[in-house]
Design a protein around this nucleic acid. Structure first.
Lengths: 208, 208
DNA sequence: CTTATCTTGGATCAGTCGTTCCAAGATAAG
DNA sequence: CTTATCTTGGAACGACTGATCCAAGATAAG
């Protein structure tokens, strides 16, 4: 009976994801993938198809393994504003330290260069998921009476989305973590309800 | 005596800038540049050098012709917060409509892929210029008594920078202009001093 | 074991990459 | 005009691109 694959698809996809993530699609050649994964062109093409389909698979893998867990955790955290603060804290930590420091976000990086329709669709899905997660947390914050009177949930969610894209993009330039933290805090702090227009009501500390 | 160039350097640089801007560096070949500019490889290489130097020249051209004028206008506008609002209004209009719609920002786009030291330096310079311009406007706003008591100028400037990067990146996905406007407004409105915690004091309308 | 079926290594493909080179063309001083 | 000097068109380069192909190897049911 037939032979079976001599490698683990999951491991290969992770390695390819890392390659595309760090160097970008255009700068990553099939040869790079062959070198890193150790498998041959035959296996690569018979398993995943061409480079475009491989990129798409890596993108979906990133969403499943990296992006979605972050968003699920944000939505599951019912604390409202502190949940959002904690989300950005984790995001900035991931972007500025550890093995993926200065790699940005694979999805954000994909926004440069004109993606084919399938990739475009994945990017849009990711954006919807991110935006929806923010809306969910903001609604929770509203329910908990944390928001200022004039805060528009949809507009604020869009603002947070822009902020996340900004963090992702700018983290590639090696900006200091504290700089990103203060920038995000400057956006989050004014959201909190200011009962007597005092400053301590804004106290969402990213370093917490 | 020697022959003179048969083309206008400025025009060529503009065309090259447009190519890199729209398609990215990695996706733009020398052949594309030859086709668009109409001049030959000889002229190209003897005038600008290789592709890397051509990209650097295009980047600097973009900064001089596109970026710096925007920032100069922001700094020159002494109105404080309304100046910042007007800046983002212009930015979003440029990113979402006209001939450069959905092209993003050449400098922001450059953040994906690992730039050589010279490019990196240009990117850092651009970021400093942007951040400094925001700080300048925020200081003006502070002097005019427009800011809330707890607003930190440096942190807020960083926040606005992240927001601008977010707008640039996200505009490439073809997001609606109104969506970006509402997102930016959600970040700008809370900055304004709220004397009696009322909403009308926040009235910086992007559609103005 | 045999054997059918899939996988694998690696040669190979045509095409494109950025770059170089040189003869032919253009220019303007003498 | 001649002539020195630069520019230009276009052929050509080797290296690399993504992709294909096939014989050899691996697997497991019979």
């Amino acid at each position: 009976m037939p032979d079976v694959k001599h490698f683990d698809t999951e491991q290969v996809l992770t390695a390819v994801e890392r390659l595309f993530w760090r160097q970008g699609v255009a700068s990553t050649g099939i040869q790079d993938i062959v070198s890193v994964t150790g498998l041959s062109r035959s296996s690569l093409y018979s398993t995943f198809g061409g480079k475009d389909e491989l990129y798409l698979a890596a993108l979906r893998h990133y969403l499943d393994e990296r992006s979605r867990p972050m968003l699920d955790r944000l939505v599951a955290d019912g604390r409202g504003l502190p949940a959002i603060t904690a989300f950005f804290d984790r995001l900035i930590r991931l972007r500025c330290s550890g093995e993926h420091a200065r790699w940005g976000c694979l999805v954000s990086n994909a926004h440069t260069g004109d993606p084919d329709p399938q990739v475009r669709k994945v990017l849009d899905q990711h954006h919807d998921a991110l935006s929806t997660a923010f809306r969910s947390s903001l609604l929770a914050a509203h329910g908990l009476g944390q928001l200022s009177a004039g805060d528009d949930v949809d507009a604020t969610a869009e603002m947070l989305t822009l902020l996340a894209y900004g963090v992702n993009l700018r983290s590639r330039s090696g900006v200091r973590r504290a700089t990103l933290q203060s920038g995000v805090m400057a956006a989050l702090a004014p959201l909190a309800k200011k009962t007597r227009c005092t400053a301590e009501a804004r106290g969402h500390d990213l370093s917490g």
